[in-house]
Design a protein around this nucleic acid. Structure first.
Lengths: 338, 338
DNA sequence: CTGAAAGCGCTTACAG
DNA sequence: CTGAAAGCGCTTACAG
């Protein structure tokens, strides 16, 4: 058992409150130099650190935050987590990690548990459109920030990228390369990134005077498996696409797997563009052309917004929206240098 | 502010202790059926959940665990974390994630902070040989389990694989393919996996009657960068290796990058074997031959050991050591099917 | 200048 | 069968 304030007070023959004030360097504490020295020596000797649980109860602040994401094995979320940890650890916070696997039920059960633990704030990166969980967070007055995906247009603290613009860039790039049958591996229509990237894809087609063909849009989700299945569907069309824009890099990796199985050359037989620029994207062969977003900065920006709420009680929703950039690699341009 | 026991008690005209007993389904509580119904209705209506902080203070159990790892962006640790979460969430625990980036100082500062928070237990996957932090955990009587790496031979709760055997398998595989200049990208000598995999590598050479050449062992660490640098060193030898056994898959990925830059064909010009079989290994082109360990099971096994200590107070150190298996892919065998 | 007290929200051994 | 009390370990407004 670690030492308590009471024990220390007994050993120093002072009141526990005095030890507490010395330990917390209370600036308005006037105390005899000898007493202070005695207490400080004791503090050092015993390596006293206040019990965080008791402190949390009294102060109504736990210095614990939580990150709720679909899946940490997706490199996007691993990078995001690092950004959040890097942004909050210097301020004395620890971070709980909760994976939902995209399940609404698991998300809600995690949030309830986090609320019972009185975490100081939540980073939510697994939200979907019109998410009741977000209303619930608001209602419970739990500080939160949404990352990457939003729930309702405009009203929540949010960090993300301009998904329409990013998808537009990706699609226009393929058009400029001469493709006119461009498939889209779409995210879920119930998720903002899915909806907006699809919108950007369509907008780029329209701007180029290409007709939108519903057959070329295949719901694929955000993981490799879904990407592979949807790719197969697109490639088995009578008039298959020559290029694919995938809603995320992980989805695009599913396309790589199918292309390989079918002996299709990338990009000669099938060009591919992803989204996010996870570290893995540049390691694929050929490298994956993708829309770069600053993943780590998503995390640090979210950390800042959350800490502003927790520590300064800022109420006004803040939004940080990064401008995405196209990164061209070998999956769209065949003579791309290694 | 969430509702408290006291408020509920006032509304139900009973004592808070009675509400507490109903909420906790105290089996030895005798109570008038009407009173119980009234209280239960209130509990449901208000969605009462006891304040976890207060509960933790009273019960001396927080239902919070912590995972300390080098870096969550390394897929090995992401998979490990999922195993731990999957093994502990059903029991009502949440898990704090702490990254050390291999820094001893950060590891120690994290552990101190976790101790102050009174986490119920710690999974430590960032330990090195003779780690004072492990002695400290023992001394503080914080339940813990080491994963993948151990600190002192034999005495701590531990989950890992037989590193010597795994490295032996990897090296023997290269020998059987006819290689006799086999380089080793070694982990740190201060980390058990580094030490033991090097030992297995040497043992396989010796068993085949091949002389160990110190020049062929290059300290590379556990990340891509170190792997790339060490590979360059090996390949610039007068008599460079024709094959490389890397201490981890991530290290091996550094070798891929160098091979690509130098226009070396894998495996014809340079064969490569990794360790861990992270999901990425099979996605590389060619696929990475590697030593498979059950990453997710590392996590669930560690969870079980930790929970046994926390909930049953088991003291005897438990060790779970998995037998690694070689997975052959295209990085060592050129006609390996896709 | 320092101490005593109250209280954060629970749980549970003890009374009645 | 239910209630009252103590106490987990802190912090801080208030007394003296």
């Amino acid at each position: 058992m670690p030492v308590t304030l009471k024990e220390l007070a007994a050993r120093a023959s002072v009141h526990p409150s005095t030890v507490s004030r010395v330990a917390n360097r209370d600036p308005k504490l006037r105390i005899a130099a000898g007493t202070r020295d005695r207490i400080e020596a004791l503090l050092k000797e015993t390596e006293y650190r206040p019990n965080g649980v008791a402190r949390g109860l009294k102060l109504r602040q736990t210095f614990v935050l939580a990150v709720v994401i679909p899946d940490i094995t997706n490199p996007f979320f691993a990078g995001l987590f690092r950004g959040i940890e890097d942004g909050t650890a210097p301020h004395g916070y620890n971070v709980l990690l909760c994976n939902t696997d995209g399940s609404i039920a698991r998300q809600q059960s995690h949030l309830q548990s986090l609320n019972a633990r009185r975490v100081d704030g939540v980073v939510l990166a697994s939200t979907f459109l019109n998410d009741p969980a977000v209303r619930w967070l608001r209602h419970q007055r739990i500080p939160y920030v949404l990352v990457n995906r939003f729930s309702d247009e405009g009203n929540d603290p949010f960090v993300g990228s301009d998904d329409v613009a990013g998808a537009y860039l990706a699609t226009r790039h393929l058009i400029e390369l001469g493709h006119n049958r461009i498939g889209h591996l779409a995210g879920q229509a119930t998720v903002s990134t899915g909806m907006l990237r699809r919108r950007g894809y369509r907008a780029a087609l329209a701007a180029a005077g290409l007709a939108a063909d519903p057959e070329l849009e295949a719901e694929a989700g955000y993981a490799e498996d879904g990407g592979a299945l949807a790719t197969q569907r697109l490639l088995s069309l009578d008039n298959p696409p020559t290029a694919i824009f995938a809603v995320t890099d992980m989805t695009a990796i599913g396309t790589y797997a199918v292309a390989r199985r079918m002996n299709l050359r990338i990009p000669q037989d099938l060009a591919i563009v992803g989204y996010n620029d996870i570290p893995l994207a540049s390691r694929l062969i050929p490298g994956l052309t993708t829309v770069h977003v600053p993943i780590h900065e998503f995390g640090t920006a979210a950390a800042r917004i959350l800490l502003d709420q927790v520590e300064k009680g800022e109420v006004s929703p803040k939004r940080v929206v990064f401008t995405p950039e196209l990164v061209v690699r070998g999956s769209t341009v065949s003579d791309f240098p290694v």
